[in-house]
Structure formats: C-alpha cells, structure tokens
C-alpha cells in the first residue's frame, strides 16, 4: 500500500470512528443505566488492531479521545481515553498470550468490559465517588454489548477490509 493510500485509509478509519461516536451519542439512550452503550466506534478500533496494527489502533484511540475532549469537554475526553486505552491494551495483551486460539467474539467482549472498567476508574478518580459499586452491571453490559459489536464486526469486516484487498495489501 502506498504511503498516500495508507494515510487516506487511516484517515477514513478515524473518520468512521468519530462518525460512529457521534451517531451513537445521537441515539436515544435505550436504558437508564449509565455506561451502557453500544460502543460502535470500538468496531473500527478492533478491526484496526486485528488487521492493520497495534500502534495504529492505539493512535486511533488517542485521536478519538482528543476529538471527544474538543467537542464534549475535557471530562468526556479523559473518559474516552481511559476506556479506549484500557480496552485496546487488554485486547493486545490477550492477543499476545493466546495468539490465534482466542475468538473474535471473546476479544470483543473483553474489549467492551475493559472499556467500561477504564471509564469507571477514571470516574472514581475524578469524582471521588464509590463507582466500583457499579462494576457488576458494567461487566454484564460489557458482555452484551461486546457480543453485539462482535457480530457487527464480523458483518462489516469484508467491507472494511475491501480497500486492503483491492491494493493487494
């Protein structure tokens, strides 16, 4: 892949991440439980870590955090960053340990749970509240949402990977 194409491709992934974040924040919250959200943007991040590279996935997350900070304030930025980074680190860790013995589904679920946990830790530090009480609910929501994004990832994978194939990698 040429450098120009690579930059364009990464920019496209970043745009997609941001568009999905915005799209998700526009959806009516279908539950009163906080922190329970789909994490659509994670699909792109996961795709990146699986098929492009780990460094790129981390960079994508940082960019997403900066975007959240600019548009929704520093607090949202820090939360996005903490959740995103913990999530990506856990996925990378699991991949290095289990290599190809772990399924996408489990990685997606692990990513969603650690995303929630990362945000909880950030909230606890910032607000000095006992947010840990909320952990069980977030784990369960992580399992559900991780499964949903896992299925979505499987569906979208051919589409996202299409430019990769076209240039013959």
């Amino acid at each position: 892949m040429s450098k120009t194409k690579y930059i364009t491709y990464m920019a496209m992934l970043l745009t997609l991440t941001i568009v999905l974040s915005i799209f998700e924040s526009m959806l009516p919250s279908f539950t009163a439980i906080p922190g329970v959200k789909l994490g659509l943007a994670n699909i792109v991040v996961m795709f990146t870590v699986f098929f492009i590279g780990r460094k790129q996935a981390v960079a994508l997350n940082v960019a997403k955090g900066v975007f959240a900070a600019i548009t929704r304030g520093a607090v949202a930025g820090v939360l996005s960053l903490c959740g995103g980074l913990l999530s990506i680190l856990v996925i990378i860790l699991l991949l290095s340990i289990f290599k190809d013995r772990i399924s996408y589904m489990l990685l997606s679920i692990a990513g969603a749970i650690s995303h929630n946990i990362g945000q909880i830790i950030a909230v606890s530090f910032m607000l000095n509240v006992y947010a840990y009480m909320y952990l069980p609910v977030l784990i369960v929501s992580g399992v559900v949402m991780g499964s949903v994004t896992g299925v979505l990832l499987k569906t979208l994978m051919p589409v996202l990977a299409y430019p990769l194939k076209e240039v013959g990698k």
Binding site: R101, Y104, M105, L106, L135, P136, I139, V140, V143, K154
Partner: peptide
Amino acid sequence: NSFFKVRDIIIIAAILAAAFILY
C-alpha cells in the same frame, strides 16, 4: 482467529458468574 468457539460459552458464563458474585 475463529469468530466464535463453543468453549467461549463457558468463558462467558464464568464472566457473568463473577459479575453476579461481585454484585
């Protein structure tokens, strides 16, 4: 990597059980 393994069900069940115990 495979998309989903039967073994995953056990792992997911274990995660949910842990959440319940935590709760």
